[in-house]
Simulated assay, not measured.
Amino acid sequence: MKLLGLHHVSIMTGKAEKNYEFFTKILGMRLVKKTVNQDDTKSYHLFYADAEGTPGTEVTFFDIPGLGNSYRGTSDISTVSLRVPSTESLLFWKERFIQYGIEHGEIEKRAYRDTLAFRDYDGTRIILVADNGEKGVRAGIPWHRDDIPLEHAIIGLGPVTLTVGIAEPTIGVLTEVMGFRFVGSYPSLEGDHPEILVYATGEGGTGAEVHIETRPDLPRARLGRGGVHHVAFRVPNEEEYDQWAQRLKDNRLPNSGKVERYYFKALYFREPNGILFELSTDTPGFATDEPMETMGQTLALPPFLEPRRKEIEANLRPLELN
């Protein structure tokens, strides 16, 4: 029983329209599902991914207009990353960010890979990571846009960084419960701080890593606009999902119990530093209720919310995504 890698990350946005513009028109990702937050149906939940909505390529956003800023600190998913094919791709993206006035850094080494950090309109800290032929979890299928060459397009999720005050409790859950393994470390780019530790699962590589940054000098983070709500990890099927539910119980980890999201099944729990983890099945996927060709074009509701469609639509603000 082994987690396959990263499944998705879920982030907070203060304005879905600008978020859609950034992730589709600037980053070139596909909106594969426009739906609602199932725990608060007055809020939109947008899913961006590769051409087919492949698990491990998904970045999702909860839309909360008027949401305040995030404040960096500990107990936080401090950065997320997106995979691109090569260092040459990073050069393309750097020029594109200059063209669109996007805040970004320089191409730098992180975990011995070429990377490029930038921020979206909400201030989310994102890093592009060059695969450069590295072995590991398979990449996704790039979504075609005329202004982004396929050889430079985004092809999935890369490592997430967890910033904590004390690393050992988080490492304990990753290795002893979730089956991650230590694969190395690299220097922090932000001064004289402990090296960042790298843990991997499944086939490893850019799509299967968690990086641990230890920063006891920082206060506890405050989640707001641009902050990462949770990170999810891939469970291949329902049989193993049931086994993971039992494993959390056996390890006495408080958790949500089994949650039916329709497009996948989920388990939620907080590791000892308070960061929210999710275990999500690869199946059944986003084409369950919409044809692959037209995913994301209309408001999709799972069957258990469909009887409330009129009520839900009446309570949603108008959302024009062009």
Rank of each mutant, 00 (worst) to 15 (best):
E195S: 14
E195H: 15
E195Y: 11
L197F: 01
Y199C: 06
G202F: 05
G202A: 01
E203M: 12
G204I: 09
G204H: 11
G205Q: 00
T206V: 10
T206R: 09
A208D: 09
H211D: 13
H211E: 15
T214L: 00
T214E: 15
R215T: 12
R215C: 15
P216M: 05
P216Y: 07
D217L: 08
D217C: 13
L218V: 06
L218S: 08
P219F: 05
P219A: 03
A221C: 02
R222C: 01
G224S: 07
G224F: 04
R225H: 04
G226E: 08
V228Q: 05
V231D: 02
V231H: 07
F233H: 11
R234K: 15
R234Q: 14
R234E: 13
R234Y: 06
V235R: 09
V235C: 13
P236C: 03
P236T: 04
N237G: 14
E238L: 08
E239Q: 14
E239N: 13
Y241K: 08
Q243C: 03
Q243V: 02
Q243K: 14
A245W: 02
A245L: 12
A245H: 13
A245E: 13
Q246N: 07
R247I: 10
R247P: 15
L248W: 10
L248T: 11
K249H: 12
D250K: 14
N251C: 05
L253N: 11
L253K: 08
P254V: 12
S256G: 10
G257K: 12
G257L: 11
K258N: 11
V259I: 15
R261Q: 07
R261F: 08
Y262H: 13
Y262C: 01
Y263P: 10
K265Q: 04
A266E: 02
A266F: 00
A266H: 00
L267M: 00
Y268D: 01
Y268P: 14
F269M: 00
F269A: 00
P272F: 11
P272K: 05
G274K: 02
G274M: 02
G274N: 10
F277G: 00
F277P: 08
F277K: 01
E278S: 06
